[in-house]
Design a protein around this nucleic acid. Structure first.
Lengths: 335, 335
DNA sequence: AATAATCATGTGAACGTTCACATATAAGTT
DNA sequence: AACTTATATGTGAACGTTCACATGATTATT
């Protein structure tokens, strides 16, 4: 009497179909060398027993887990969340399953633990959302260079496999547009500068001003939150430096800043023009609708899996950084 | 000559330490019955070979994968994303790894595929974020009732293991507050009504009006997006029914509505009071700062794992629904 | 001093697959 | 007709663990 609780195995199917376990294995792996006759018989038995191949056993035998892992930092943020969606979609399409791991803090211990786990779990490749400047990433990558890793949102011009959106360019787009429309006093609210994207956007702003022989009026650092944008904008006007335009490193901070400026009696865009970053879905409904630099985080996520799969198939193909281009979306927060 | 590329195994360690593989197994599993002497010797060998236990092999032998899966619908939405964070944190704390799977569409085929995969992957339990009304969930749960499932954001008073936030109550809190502060013409913008939370919030609004012998002035259905809130608010004033307050089923739609109402020359809160739902981080920086019903999605996620782990340990403990309570956050969008 | 109980260790099978072969039959060549 | 080749199937080991049991050495009990 077979216990009903346990799953049917290859041998159970083989017995029922009157063939060897290996033949069943051939059937479920679409091997050509099995006669149509027996194939049918086996398929019936599979159906009848509701057999499902055991992925664990298969992974052990083949040494392939068909599993990827996404290690992220800050699921709460808009960018990373979007990337995750893209990664999941692409992984599923490629027949991979996805482990999900979040790093709340970037301590060495935490990262170490995560990496050790990677080994134990037999993961075939890793998408690492590494938006924060940190040597740890590189260390760990090197240390574990037998497991393919693609990094997202890392620094520019880095030599290991990675994909980024060209934030420096995005910032140029934003700043130059303001200059082209007549502004010469352009302040900024940056993201936390230890974040790669924040740093690149900040430098893009600085470089563009310099190229146009303009001086940076003033700037403050925020932490991506609307709250910090609100505080930063207040600070900026407190400091007394006059500005007619403001480049703000993400849309949430822009929202906070808009509120703060309004509280100070400044009208947007009449008194100050604003450009944000990201183009979150809400940006069109800010008051006024926000001009911003759109980031396609979702395809960034998808592409990372494409790249990763290439590397898994052929480790030699691992070569450097790929770059996506952001886009200026014009709305009503500037003039 | 050992190939360096392959991982060290239990036997390699055993050989180096001069003990049997079983003794090594005992050491890595903290078995008490191994002498301090040999334990040290083994630990040294482990260190020296940089040995990592193979999780796959262990899972095969023990029939325990120490793996949970989170199946979500719509990573893009604020609620689900927050829940995911909570689930991940709790799973890691309990020593579980987490598979991540997203359902873009709720077709039978897609869900079926996901569930089949669950079996194959030897997952010990599933957190199912099931925010949309659908018989499919129940079907699948029943069909697979040997694998523990905890559902999130499902319907109220459902009999299988699940955790929800009491949206009906939340909506009561919102509506009653408006009534208590003198409003009697209270319109609403609901979420898509096939979403459980949307339906519950909608009914909460209706019931509260009824309890106070008030008639629902008017309402429209949105799709959670700011864009739909914008459209809905315009529609509402187009229809000509006068209202002095508006209950809006999430904060994003509230943002859109605020913009629309302003375009119609209505001031907030002087002409119309607004209450939203969720308390997204940006809500404090809307103009005006939004009064809203806070949802603790993150602990919802955490608790789902607690519950799930209980069920895994003792299937008998699977009992019904747990309910969390939302909270009214007063800000400036009402009077 | 003899027996039982405990402790530390080892042995071989099992988990459910695939892999590398071996074998048997059928079909194609010269 | 004899020999190669292709096709269909089976056999046993391997993947890296744990499990159930067996053994030998030590300690406790009477």
């Amino acid at each position: 009497m077979k216990p009903k609780s346990t799953h049917a195995t290859l041998h159970d199917v083989a017995e029922l179909a009157g063939v060897s376990h290996q033949t069943v294995s051939r059937v479920i792996n679409d091997s050509p060398s099995v006669s149509e006759n027996t194939r049918q018989r086996v398929l019936e038995a599979i159906q009848q027993l509701n057999y499902q191949p055991n992925h664990t056993a298969r992974a052990l035998a083949t040494r392939r887990s068909l599993t990827l892992e996404i290690v992220t930092f800050g699921v709460g943020y808009y960018g990373p969340a979007q990337m995750m969606g893209g990664v999941e979609r692409a992984a599923k399409a490629r027949g991979y399953r996805l482990f999900f791991s979040n790093l709340d803090r970037l301590t060495y211990a935490d990262m170490r633990e995560t990496v050790e786990d990677l080994k134990r779990q037999q993961v075939e490749g890793v998408v690492l959302i590494a938006p924060v400047r940190s040597v740890l990433y590189e260390e760990l990558i090197k240390e574990r260079n037998n497991i393919p890793v693609v990094q997202l949102a890392t620094q520019k011009d880095v030599t290991f496999p990675s994909i980024i959106i060209d934030q420096h360019l995005g910032s140029r787009l934003a700043t130059q547009h303001l200059i082209d429309t007549g502004h010469s006093s352009i302040a900024a609210i940056s993201g936390p500068l230890h974040w790669n994207d924040a740093a690149a956007r900040h430098e893009g702003w600085l470089d563009t001003l310099q190229d146009n022989h303009l001086n940076p009026v003033n700037w403050t650092e925020g932490d991506w939150s609307a709250a910090s944008g609100y505080r930063a904008a207040h600070e900026l006007v407190d400091h007394g430096a006059k500005f007619t335009a403001l480049v703000i490193a993400n849309d949430q901070m822009a929202l906070g800043a808009i509120l703060a400026l309004r509280e100070r009696g400044l009208r947007i865009p009449e008194d100050v023009s604003i450009v944000g970053f990201d183009d979150i879905p809400e940006a069109s409904f800010f008051d006024p609708p926000l001009t911003t630099i759109r980031q396609d985080f979702s395809t960034l996520g998808e592409q990372s899996v494409e790249y990763l799969v290439e590397i898994i198939a052929d480790p030699e193909s691992a070569a450097g950084q790929r770059v996506l281009t952001p886009r200026l979306i014009l709305r009503k927060s500037h003039r």
